[in-house]
């Protein structure tokens, strides 16, 4: 039950985009077509679901104060937590490289339509944000972090697909000139975020 809670919370209540604005750059840039948005969303889900648990293990067995105890009792008072940024980003960069090779091999059409944004998943704030929030939330088991990573990824994917669908429609409407393009996209996202706030009152 606990796992289902974490999963649903991270999709709706703590949605990466609407509650924390993580991964906005690619969210705004790749949301012109629903199809590309789906592809990028799927890649983000995949990368988040892997990097969050891996970083959890690294955090637990290498970085936390006293985490090195399993190696040798004399190392118990070493605190490497200041290294967490660099370790997390290294894991993420390596995982993204893997995903990139995978997509290039099995879905070349998607690969060319995602273009520069596939390698840039490495610098998508949502991915690193997932790991950093995981560190803050003090999860206790690997399965919880998998649920959290998966949920955050799906929440992000849902947001980008919705926005892409709206933008496809907006291109037929008569938007004031200075607002065209990015301006109206911001306002649409703001309105979507207000709609998502309806979930915040729900306690699970």
């Amino acid at each position: 039950m606990e796992l289902v809670n974490i999963f649903i919370r991270s999709i709706f209540i703590e949605n990466m985009i609407f509650a924390f604005f993580l991964g906005m750059c690619s969210y705004l840039a790749v949301s012109k077509k629903v199809k590309t948005a789906m592809g990028l969303g799927a890649a983000v889900v995949f990368v988040l679901a892997i990097t969050v648990p891996v970083n959890f293990l690294i955090d637990k067995y290498l970085l936390q104060p006293g985490a090195l105890k399993w190696l040798d009792p004399s190392l118990a008072n070493i605190d490497l937590s200041f290294l967490s940024f660099i370790m997390f980003i290294a894991v993420i960069a390596a995982m993204v490289q893997l995903v990139e090779m995978f997509v290039e091999r099995f879905a070349p059409a998607l690969y060319s339509s995602l273009g520069i944004f596939l390698p840039l998943i490495a610098v998508n704030c949502a991915i690193l944000g997932g790991s950093l929030f995981m560190q803050q939330k003090e999860f206790t088991s690997v399965s919880e972090t998998i649920a959290y990573g998966l949920g955050s990824g799906i929440g992000w994917m849902m947001a980008i697909v919705f926005l892409a669908a709206i933008r496809e429609k907006i291109s037929y409407s008569n938007v004031p000139k200075p607002l065209r393009g990015i301006g109206i996209t911001f306002i649409v996202t703001g309105l979507m975020a207000i709609a998502f706030m309806a979930f915040m009152g729900i306690k699970i």
């Binding site: 609407f18 509650a19 924390f20 604005f21 911001f186 306002i187 996202t189 703001g190 309105l191 975020a193 207000i194 706030m197």
Partner: peptide
């Protein structure tokens, strides 16, 4: 104060 208004 809500995040949504930052976007707007």
């Amino acid at each position: 104060l809500l995040p949504a208004m930052a976007l707007i």
